[in-house]
Amino acid sequence: MKKKILLVFMVSMLFAGVVSAASIWGTYKGNQIIRITSNGVPLQTPDVPAISFNGRTMIPINLLGQLGVGYTWDSKNQTVDVKINQYPNSAPNNSSDQRMKENVIIANNFKSLEDLGNTISLLSNGYSLAYQSIDMNYKVYETLTDANKKLNSTIDMYNSTQKNLTSPIYSNILNEYFKALDSFKKTDTAISKFANSKSKTDFDNYLNNSKDGTTTSSMARFQAGQEYRKYIYSVINR
């Protein structure tokens, strides 16, 4: 399920959207999304994903085109003619080349996710500097503002990424980044309050949320790195 994070400015705002518990891959128009793989490699979903409907797995026929299933559509008679093991638009050896190109694209997408995870994790550094400024009572407003700007910039990066990477294979990592950014939004609010209150409660909220954001984003970043290496190795070892 797509989620869009709104910008914050020294305030705490709730994230919009809830991940469906009905399927680990999310839902499509109320139906569980089913992940389709070939030899362990996920097929790419161009628009409509495979779904579970009335206990059956429904797979869009254009998705099977990645496996060499050719078809023609007769709109007049509302009929689809299927040709198994045919390559209507390319020779069989070109299908392998197409799969390699797709794996390169997937690998690059996971690399982008890994880089995004690193950017999210580094948000904790900005808030650590803000705490030090509060502790020394030196340029407090400037460091808080800088940390907040970096948070909003990272949120923009996340929103752009989740808009472009709509395939279910990226959803788990994006969901974890969503949670991490939520923690850093709470971090932002807590440390801003701490700058005025100097209370232990606000300090603990700042520290705990910063830790949660860093841990969550780091684990998801590690997963993205693993997926990147898996796909890039499949290309190298082809």
Rank of each mutant, 00 (worst) to 15 (best):
S183T: 05
K111A: 13
K230P: 00
S192F: 09
K150D: 10
A180I: 01
Q98F: 09
Y231H: 14
A224I: 08
L122N: 14
G40W: 01
M13T: 11
S75F: 09
M219S: 08
S153L: 06
I34D: 01
K139Q: 10
T145Q: 12
S183D: 12
T57G: 08
T57F: 12
Q44A: 11
T37P: 04
I51Q: 05
P49V: 00
I191K: 12
N208A: 07
N109K: 06
M157N: 13
A16C: 02
N137F: 01
M13I: 11
V80I: 14
S121R: 13
F184S: 03
G30C: 04
F15S: 05
L129I: 15
P88W: 06
V140A: 01
Y127W: 13
Q223E: 14
A195Q: 10
I106M: 14
S183V: 03
S153C: 01
L43D: 02
Y233W: 10
I120A: 11
M10P: 00
Y170I: 02
K198I: 02
L207Y: 13
T161L: 09
E176L: 12
Y28Q: 10
Y138D: 11
K193I: 03
Y141F: 10
D146K: 11
S160F: 04
R221D: 02
D97L: 15
L64P: 11
I169G: 02
T27W: 02
E176F: 09
Y141M: 03
V140C: 00
I232Q: 05
N62V: 12
N175Q: 09
S75N: 15
N108F: 03
W25Y: 15
K111P: 12
M100I: 15
A16M: 09
F203C: 07
T215L: 07
T145A: 11
D204P: 00
K230M: 09
P92H: 06
I5M: 12
D81I: 07
K139F: 12
L144T: 12
I191Y: 13
Q162M: 00
P49G: 03
K185A: 04
P60I: 08
Y177L: 04
L123P: 06
M10I: 02
N205P: 11
L122W: 03
V104T: 11
S133A: 15
A147P: 05
